[in-house]
Amino acid sequence: MSQAQADCVGIVIVSHSPEVARGAADMARQMAGDEAPIAWCGGDPDGGLGSDVGKIIEAIEAAWSEQGVAILVDLGGAETNSEVAIEMLDPGRAEKVRICNAPLVEGAVMAAAEASGGASLTEVVRTAEEYSPA
């Protein structure tokens, strides 16, 4: 990871489906270029639809930035498993990771665009969440 990347908030995309996660990451990367680190994961531990705490932790580490990491999730299990993954990080890291209450694709694109401009984690999360219903 380049020095430039570590200056931007990282983005992690967690879907029940690896194809959805990869596709959303592709779209986010198109907006963010190589400025913000982006990682994705999807699927349960056997490769079926679902989520996997171990893979989420790996994705957070892959997208790690000292500026923080914003996670975009699709459905319930992805969110719950992401919460567990955050709790399993070192406490110093856990406090720099946030789950966005935002739709996966739109949230990821907005978060990546904001992150690539050097915005703070709070700003990245807020921008992604502007797409939240109500």
Binding site: D44, D46, G48, G50, S51, V53, G77, T80, V84
Partner: peptide
């Protein structure tokens, strides 16, 4: 269970 179940029930039962 947290690591293996792969759905929301993993962290809940975990």
């Amino acid at each position: 269970l947290v690591m293996k179940v792969g759905g929301a029930s993993g962290p809940l039962y975990g």
